[in-house]
């Protein structure tokens, strides 16, 4: 005999609706993460210059979004997710700076360039000719080096606007700054990159 009979029908309908709603929300979140996770990983990887750390940061950002903002509208998830991720990246970089200072104090080299192998971090080829793949990898490595030289805020604004395709308002929400500041950071980033990357990039 079904539990959902007579007097229980109303409450059972409510439970079914909430169950269906939860399932739908889980599917929406799954699609959202599947859509955003690879780009988020590469953005975090460019910022922290390490894939393992970037994977941890992206997963942490996913968990925090689910825990705190799963009930928000779908349109709010992208800026919220990137705001969480950017905060996690900044926390990570602060800890790294402290760690590097401590290591330097004990006389060891703490140059992050020592640990960063652009060839190892480069992505695998994906159906392109070796020349095309090599050219693309070299371009990305060149771009990553130029991005690494930018101030953090300019780098964040450029990556969110140009790589993730967020508009000014979404970028402002993700970075926790005003629209005007986003425009300023982005403009400075573009001009610095033009100067660094040279004529053949622009």
């Amino acid at each position: 005999m079904s539990a959902c009979t007579e007097g229980f029908a109303v409450s059972c309908t409510g439970e079914l609706e909430s169950g269906v709603g939860a399932l739908r929300r889980e599917q929406e979140l799954n699609r959202f993460f599947a859509d955003v996770e690879a780009r988020a990983l590469r953005i975090a990887e460019i910022a922290v210059r390490n894939r393992e750390d970037a994977l941890d940061l992206v997963q942490d950002a996913m968990i925090r979004l689910v825990r705190n903002y799963a009930d928000r509208d779908r349109e709010e998830w992208t800026p919220l997710f990137y705001r969480i991720l950017q905060n996690r990246v900044r926390d990570f970089q602060r800890r790294q700076n402290v760690r590097n200072r401590v290591i330097a104090w004990f006389g060891r080299s703490s140059d992050p360039e020592d640990d960063y192998d652009p060839i190892a971090a480069a992505p695998d080829p994906d159906g392109r000719t070796p020349d095309e793949s090599l050219e693309s990898q070299e371009a990305m490595q060149e771009l990553e080096r130029a991005l690494a030289a930018l101030p953090a805020r300019q780098r964040e604004a450029f990556m969110l606007r140009n790589f993730e395709g967020l508009d000014v308002a979404q970028t402002a929400a993700a970075m926790g700054i005003s629209d005007g500041s986003v425009k300023t950071h982005y403009s400075r980033a573009v001009h610095s990159l033009r100067d660094t990357l040279g004529e053949h990039w622009s």
């Binding site: 780009r39 590469r42 695998d124 450029f158 573009v190």
Partner: peptide
């Protein structure tokens, strides 16, 4: 600026596809 933005976006997308 537009060429730089496009080239940067293309290089980034290629690196994402190549994961």
């Amino acid at each position: 600026v537009r060429r730089l933005e496009k080239k940067a976006a293309d290089a980034f997308e290629a690196s994402v596809r190549g994961l």
